[in-house]
Simulated assay, not measured.
Amino acid sequence: MTAPEHDSVAYKILTREQRDSLFADGTFSGAPIDLTDGYIHMSTADQVQGTLDKHFDGQDDLHIAAVDLSALGDVVKWEASRENALFPHIYAALPLSAVIAHGPVHRDATGTVQLPRA
């Protein structure tokens, strides 16, 4: 499936250790679930909140990397996942060069996740 036109940026939620590895190595091969599934799970801006709430509940010291999907070419596949929504999946290591912004997970007063901006 092809990407929705407005989604050229996707987000990867990382633990501190994963973020540190990305910056030290210049690439990120994936979290344990990514390695098991064979691709790096990503979320659109509208999906980040749900991904955090479902898969990272109770964890702290989390970080979000904003990724320029257009820099990755055809290794990005849009596939149906949670509630049949299309999610971007990266079928390769994530290069640091595609990360356009990053920061710690921060929620505003209403609990809404604030995304890092380039």
Rank of each mutant, 00 (worst) to 15 (best):
T44P: 00
D37H: 10
P104M: 11
P4C: 03
A101E: 04
A118M: 11
A45S: 13
T27C: 04
Q49M: 06
G73V: 15
T2M: 09
H89L: 14
D53I: 13
V9D: 01
M1I: 14
D20H: 08
N84I: 07
S8Y: 06
H89D: 04
W78C: 12
V75H: 07
P32D: 12
N84C: 07
V76G: 02
H6Y: 03
L94E: 02
A101R: 09
P104I: 10
Q47P: 04
M1Y: 01
V67Y: 00
Y39R: 15
A3V: 09
M1F: 05
G30S: 03
A109E: 09
D46E: 13
R107M: 07
A93E: 04
L22W: 01
N84R: 11
E5F: 07
A45C: 06
L52R: 14
D25F: 05
P4N: 05
Q49K: 11
G103Y: 03
K12S: 13
S29F: 01
R107G: 01
Q114H: 07
D46G: 10
I100P: 00
G111A: 06
G26E: 03
F87Y: 11
A71R: 14
P116R: 14
F87T: 07
Q49I: 11
T36Q: 09
H6Q: 11
L86R: 08
H63E: 05
G50Q: 05
G50S: 05
L69F: 06
A93K: 10
D37F: 10
D60V: 07
V99G: 03
A101M: 09
P32L: 10
Q114Y: 01
L115H: 03
D46M: 12
I90M: 08
P4E: 01
S81F: 11
T112D: 01
T112Q: 04
H63P: 00
S8P: 00
A31Y: 01
F87H: 09
T36F: 00
I33S: 06
L22Y: 02
E5D: 10
F87C: 02
M42P: 00
F23Q: 07
L94G: 03
N84K: 13
I13N: 03
V113A: 09
D74Y: 08
A85G: 02
P95D: 02
G38S: 05
A10P: 01
D60Y: 02
G111T: 07
V99A: 05
T2D: 01
Y91D: 02
S97F: 03
Q47V: 14
G58N: 04
P4A: 08
R117G: 09
I64Y: 01
H41G: 07
G50V: 01
A92I: 12
I100F: 00
F23N: 05
V113R: 08
H41L: 13
K12Q: 13
N84H: 05
H89Q: 10
I100W: 00
D60T: 13
D25T: 15
Q114A: 14
V9K: 04
H41T: 14
V75P: 00
F87D: 01
G26M: 10
F87R: 10
Y91C: 10
Q49Y: 02
S97P: 00
D7I: 15
S8H: 09
P88F: 03
D20V: 12
L96Y: 02
A101G: 09
T36N: 06
H63S: 06
V48T: 09
G38F: 06
A93C: 07
D7W: 11
V48R: 02
Q114F: 04
W78A: 05
H63D: 02
H6R: 12
P116K: 14
A101L: 13
D53R: 13
A66V: 15
D74A: 11
D7R: 14
